[in-house]
Amino acid sequence: MTATSPTTEVSRGGSHELVIDGLRAGVAGLEVLTGVDLVVRSGEVHAVMGPNGSGKSTLAHVLMGKPGYQVLGGTVTLDGEDLLRLAPFERARLGLFLAPQDPIEVPGVGLHQTLTEALAGRGMSPDDAKGSLAARALVEAQRVGLETRLLERPLNVDLSGGERKRSETLQMALLQPNIAVLDELDSGIDIDGLHDVAQRVRDGVAEWGLGVLAITHYRRLLSVLQPDVVHVLVRGRIVASGGPELAGELERTGYAAFETAARADDSGTGIQN
């Protein structure tokens, strides 16, 4: 809070860059990320795939600064700004967005109210925020297939898994972040819903140059998202990167080969700590 506030002005259509360099991080004393290198720029879609326990969600939370995760080494910058020294809300104001895997219920706090405060926090006057939101929210609700009556409801309360993912996507569209980290946007949502939210994200790439880091288990999401690059995360680091065809290969062969290689690699070099 005492740190200098990051600039709240978000330049539209400019080029933004999230740079993850040698990131090592852990939770509860266990090193989960063992050295992640990744660069996501405006207009690019990156997919991160990996088996359970490979560190995918940890990566998402460490990027956003969730309490309880420890950064053990490496750097993360957004447009040159050191993200790791910023509080989560400051990272968000800098243009980072996280759609969590399981968006939680916040009783009594409305979606509309939340977005109004979120925009106010980015320097928009409360009246402007309210005014511009009301109309845009209706349009976005249509695009992501969220019933408009849910806009007035408390955040995620009594919403199905699919409705939560549609709500996350709507919030992303209204906040127009520079870089969005989507943690399993495809979990808990049916095929139609998946298509709606993935299409909205894809449109964001075209509309305002959104950069995407999509974490997923499945290729389904990627058929609409059309990633430029697919990364394979195994044992806390990226062991392979390739074009969209890599996702297809993973679906046929699984992660076993990558895991075996990574394990051999680990025992060769030895895991630190």
Partner: peptide, 15 residues
Amino acid sequence: EQRYYLETRGIAPAV
């Protein structure tokens, strides 16, 4: 968790 979720939207902790 609720506070963190709101923070991820760019809302200051006190708000």
